[in-house]
Design a protein around this nucleic acid. Sequence first.
DNA 1: TAAAGTTAGTGTATTTTTTACACTAACTAA
DNA 2: TTAGTTAGTGTAAAAAATACACTAACTTTA
Lengths: 230, 230
Amino acid sequence: MQPKKLPRLKSTFSVDCVIFGVDDGVLKILLIERNEPPFKAWKAIPGNLVRDQEDIDDAAKRILYELTGLKDIYLEQSYTFGRTNRHPQGRVITVSYYSLIQKTDDIRPVTGFAKTAFWCPVHELPKLAFDHREIVEKALAQLKHKINYQPIGFELLPKRFTLTQLQHVYEAILEVDLDKRNFRKKMLSFGLLESCQEKQTGGSHRAASLYRFNKKRYHQLATKGFIFGL
Amino acid sequence: MQPKKLPRLKSTFSVDCVIFGVDDGVLKILLIERNEPPFKAWKAIPGNLVRDQEDIDDAAKRILYELTGLKDIYLEQSYTFGRTNRHPQGRVITVSYYSLIQKTDDIRPVTGFAKTAFWCPVHELPKLAFDHREIVEKALAQLKHKINYQPIGFELLPKRFTLTQLQHVYEAILEVDLDKRNFRKKMLSFGLLESCQEKQTGGSHRAASLYRFNKKRYHQLATKGFIFGL
DNA sequence: TAAAGTTAGTGTATTTTTTACACTAACTAA
DNA sequence: TTAGTTAGTGTAAAAAATACACTAACTTTA
């Protein structure tokens, strides 16, 4: 399954990114198809070696940028994977990150390696290269946990969104059905969602109100111990 | 402050451990005094380079063992620090772990480097080498968070403990005062604390009942979604 | 233009959980 | 035997979470 005569690398580190997006109530991640050995033609999460003079956070941002053309997106360090045999070419420790993006944003790959990128529902993952399956599972668990106490759902939505869209994000991540009235009551109770005084257009049904999340005010409250959770 | 002519290391990785213990209601960590440059004679958290054929988790266990003589202790990966300039000798990425031990256990350093180890209250830390201060703060924040949904307080106590001791652990970590009756009610409500049918001895006052934590049953419940929290 | 289809939007009653709070019991030492 | 110290206990009030069903607004189609 692995080629045999690849060069040994000296001890080195890489960064891998699990990039989440929500699409029509389904949680997805961005995968690529590798075009080099090892694991040539396998699906994988995007990643790269960390450069000599590069902070690891910056390496993660670079990968995201190369892949999506986006900057300033939500990024969290997830976990570090360091089993001795996790990479067939030598000792490579990888620091994984996860990131949340608005799937509506136009994604414009900046480099060649990103051309094969595609979205895949988290529950329909193909076999992945290296220990990437494990990396995805870890990020998924962290995401599921974090949404209970931080307002990260908004990172997956456009600036202006409807309450139903927001509920779908929560449902997709938590894998539960939520009660519409209770969900709305709770979300509005924090006083952090502001009406845009505008309605969504396009559906063949009643138009929904658009809201935006007041991040600045959230950060003020957060410093005083406020917790944003369902 | 830093010597100038140290050899450059090639890119490499280390593991650092924040070792927590609770003593008389005070949360402490184990520090060492470095006896080699860089940062010779500075206080630091224990750590070491990861060996070529060593998993990073194993490296953390090794450090703990060398320092305390203890095995099978609670250990969690905390965070990975990878700023390019965090180590004066070259590029060293460090994976930090935190560990919880029972301070009553006899600590018997196994190697020389551990001889200078001492306990320090987390709120009276001296200046620390490298970015160790930041590493400790991160571990502290994670500990404080985790105790809200996992039964990790028991790791800091002997097998048999009183409810007051347990309360002190929670108070030390969360940095709040808790109501005695409410705390006991909550803790006992899970049905995971079993009476040892025995009393503590030694105080010049009424003797307290001893309890033990039923970890096996906890894990059974946990798989069904049960959450152990205050 | 009326009817059918679709999603938006809203309130209340019940249950559960959290909080606040103060005295008696048991033991030791002086 | 008294003073000192920590252990141990219950209830009532407040707050939060849950369960639950209909009307409103808009579009499409017959």
